[in-house]
Design a protein around this nucleic acid. Structure first.
Lengths: 338, 338
DNA sequence: TTGTATGCGTTATCAC
DNA sequence: GTGATAACGCATACAA
């Protein structure tokens, strides 16, 4: 457990100057083969690897892509972060994943700016924000030429950012049409209304209903993003007079709660209700859950992000744009055999 | 989107020298109040925050704790990482969460040393490794006085590391005793055998069975950590002659697969089988899963880690020790009403 | 080809 | 109480 060796020690061991040793690691040529070998073997012997942070400090910009993960508890986001990292790696682009710190003060969630500054101070050559941040202002201190790419969420307050996400309008439409094709008319929606994201999906639901000629069956119930809230909301919906025959949840978690409520009620003699979710969390494919849901094409999102970052000029060309990918309907038992 | 301001610009705006401005941020006293105010307001105006990495470069050590997250897909680990971050924050200790890069080469999983070096080069004052790394050698380049704490897994190859984890022997024992108390004798075990961790749980299962006088009913089936493998393994177990009446899975994921297999078979007329998992993933409490499992006391682990790091001398005193916390049995329907 | 000097942003150590 | 200087590890522009 010794201190990490510096380039100076490598140079000393190899019997050359620090600058020569530095050149071995920074540029391909400019050093005679024998001396290069000496340096490399000395580095190997000492276990030396360049300190990339000192390097980016000196260079004014690092050679890595910062991936900022918004919520460690959301499997959709962790998955996209990891897939993005892999996609970048395949193109030879190193990256660094770090998690945002979210603090709760009297019920409201706040991003700790320090955790963002930490990553920015590392001077990434590009920044990928995975998941919706309540506030993107801290990123204003980024240099103009560092592209910011936001995955899965609108880029609130950052006009220059590139957004890569699934087309939620299409996703919700796929669900509504699927349910309609199964004969459902009374299709309700359960979800939050506290963000651009959630408001968008709710609006998409209403629009889909109108387009399907089901305007008069529109019925929404506000609920936060958890299973519990979905359960409570479904209970409310299903104990009214004109109960829906199908329910779309804002996300899988909510849908799980809805499923539970439906499950309880059917055991008590109520008619079955079709349930659909959103995100295709790995839980939704468990045999006993088997939830019809929407796959946001996580891998496609990751690959698209990697493309934008690694293709020269792409980031600049797409600046401020929103790239919408086509989501995919995953049909399972929760709607087929409710 | 401008470049982040440096302390120099702050000093210029405040009309003082760089060193004076620096003192304002590093030490409480030593600067006259009026000048201090000037510097602070200049900093606020420019949106200046000190670059902590340049700071640790200069100081030789940073003031943050590095949290290394082993597997972004494992909800147990992401949860512990987040809880640890929170526990440290409550003690006023900043931390930085980053994810390890795992590469797969011909089936074997390798840790990318670069992703570890990245974090080490930041010079954390302590390091928390969440989840078992196949290889801890890269940490040998850490200075002696930087404590390494490994959560949930043995510290393979790092004698100085402190291990904080649930007592798996106890956890498995709790499950076995619970099942035995329900009248089960033929209790089987499904899980991998490729790591210290998994071998430990399997051994604990065997020992518990012996202690319960159920030696002749010992039956294990090797399966990797996924739902699929659990499903397949359970199918094998349940189609033999002398089928078990209860199955313990190495983790929740495997248990989900076992549940599915049991589910299929009971529908085909086979007798019900009790199923138990391990980790108390949030999925296990879903109404339709309702899996009996073991809570590793994630929060207690996180708090313990924060204590060791923040209490002066604690890390040194515990060096090389393994701290085992008592796990807790969570009884749900999968064993009560299989 | 090689060595030397300088600076990235910060802070500790000196002088003043 | 204040300001100049060196140094952390690295890379580059320059001179040798």
């Amino acid at each position: 457990m010794n201190k990490r060796p510096t380039i100076r020690e490598v140079a000393d061991l190899a019997g050359v100057s620090k600058s020569l040793a530095a050149m071995v690691f920074s540029s391909e040529s400019g050093v005679s083969p024998d001396r290069r070998d000496k340096v490399l073997s000395a580095a190997k012997k000492l276990g030396y690897t360049p300190n990339q942070w000192a390097r980016s400090l000196r260079a004014g910009a690092g050679n890595f892509v910062g991936i900022l993960l918004n919520d460690l508890h959301n499997p959709l986001l962790t998955e996209i972060a990891d897939l993005t990292r892999k996609a970048l790696l395949e193109k030879g682009q190193p990256s660094f994943v770090s998690a945002v710190v979210i603090n709760e003060r009297n019920g409201k969630r706040f991003v700790d700016p320090a955790s963002i500054h930490s990553l920015l101070d590392l001077r990434p050559k590009a920044l990928v924000v995975v998941g919706g941040l309540p506030d993107l202002k801290p990123f204003k201190s980024l240099p103009e030429d560092v592209p910011v790419i936001v995955a899965t969420s609108p880029a609130a307050g950052l006009p220059g950012a590139i957004v890569v996400r699934a087309d939620d309008d299409q996703g919700i439409r796929l669900l509504a049409e699927h349910l309609h094709s199964l004969g459902h008319k009374k299709i309700a929606y359960v979800g939050p209304d506290d963000s651009q994201n959630s408001l968008g999906r709710m609006a998409a639901y209403k629009k889909s209903m109108v387009d399907l000629g089901l305007e008069k069956y529109i019925r929404t119930q506000v609920a936060d993003r958890t299973e519990d809230r979905g359960f409570a909301a479904a209970k409310l919906l299903l104990q009214e007079n004109d109960t829906p025959t199908a329910i779309i949840g804002f996300n899988d978690n909510i849908a799980f709660g809805v499923q539970n409520a439906v499950h309880q009620l059917t055991k008590a003699g109520f008619p079955p209700v079709a349930v659909a979710g959103y995100d295709n969390t790995y839980v939704s494919e468990l045999d006993r859950i088997s939830l019809t849901t929407i796959e946001q094409e996580k891998e496609a999102i990751a690959i698209k992000i990697a493309e934008i970052i690694t293709e020269p000029g792409a980031a600049l060309a797409q600046r401020g744009k929103e790239i919408k990918l086509l989501p995919r309907l995953i049909v399972r038992n929760s709607t087929l055999n409710p």
